[in-house]
Design a protein around this nucleic acid. Sequence first.
DNA 1: ATATACCAAACGACCGTTCGATAGAAACCG
DNA 2: CGGTTTCTATCGAACGGTCGTTTGGTATAT
Lengths: 208, 208
Amino acid sequence: MARLVGRLRAPTLVPRRQRRSAEREKSIRAAALRIFRQKGYHAASMQNIADAVGLYKGSLYYYVSSKEELLVRLFEGRADQVLGEIRAITYGTGTCTEQLRAMARAYVLGVLRNLDSVRVYLREEYVLPSAALRQVHAEQRTMRDLFERVIGDGMRDGSFVGTDPKLAALALLGMCTWVHRWYRPKGRLTETAIADDFAERAVRMLCP
Amino acid sequence: MARLVGRLRAPTLVPRRQRRSAEREKSIRAAALRIFRQKGYHAASMQNIADAVGLYKGSLYYYVSSKEELLVRLFEGRADQVLGEIRAITYGTGTCTEQLRAMARAYVLGVLRNLDSVRVYLREEYVLPSAALRQVHAEQRTMRDLFERVIGDGMRDGSFVGTDPKLAALALLGMCTWVHRWYRPKGRLTETAIADDFAERAVRMLCP
DNA sequence: ATATACCAAACGACCGTTCGATAGAAACCG
DNA sequence: CGGTTTCTATCGAACGGTCGTTTGGTATAT
């Protein structure tokens, strides 16, 4: 009986606080991301984040165990989507050239659609505890390996020029990663325009 | 008479303390650069720098007026040399292709030969007081304009493909700037090998 | 004797974090 | 349904620590 009452009220009443609480936590993480991006991790204070969500700084610790945890959690799983997309491209059909074009495009779009994360991700590496840092480096190595393999395949079968796939991958990824420094969402060019352009540029950089 | 004695001793004795003092100041700035690069500006303490040069942290203020000044001075004139080299190339003779190749090469070498500065320069921008920040942005804009102009000239006379010199310059500079993130002095490749390779890549990215 | 280069301690500010108190919402019970 | 208890989210103050900076003293070289 009690269970029945519980069941009936659950969909409307029980979740109310839980939902509010979950929203709070989300808004805290969103504020942290924004403020870490604007001022950098060390220059950003818990007070800044608290102000942004309308709490006292001490109250943040009801949702978060430390400032560092706040940063680490921002990184978690952030690269998975793009990494998955790009890996799928290498599994699919298509010439090396087509694959590389699609990969570069996906990578640039990934950067452009996660601007704040990418900026924090690239600047605050050295703040991470070593476990999280290893994770980040592993992701970066995986990404580089994916490009390196396709480029290497292309070089061996004559689709691409050059003999150093690692160096080529670093050049290509550098070009594509750097967009996070100059892209402005309100700017002259759309995300897809930039991604398409850079994908074409990546291919041309390697084609005979 | 006192003046005469002063004159006679000056070349050997008076400069001794001055020389030691100047060396101290230089070693402080060198330590600051190294430590700022390793830990980031905010995470680096005056104590860290003092330890590195064998002083008490309070004693640093005999040479330096503040931590911020220490950072700002690290930036001063740092871009001048490369900027001058590259400007000279655009003033010289040579086709657009030749000029662009030489410019990219000089730029990459500039990054590789000033690794620590570049890393701090790119990460700590947001710490600078606004006057120094404007200076930094002006230098970056100047650099981009130099590349943009040569690329634009080449596009108009058919040496280069494409219609957006600004975007091409951003792609090229991104590729070349990013070397600061992965280059290790003890690594497999020499500075000039990387610079030559990237210069060739830059040209290929733009040639029909 | 005098100026220099440095020491050693202290100061004041700020920051991340902790903690006891509390108001209001939810849960329980007769 | 009304009253009581429990729990939750937040407050507001305080704490411990670190850091940049100041200052008064002092040994040494000039």
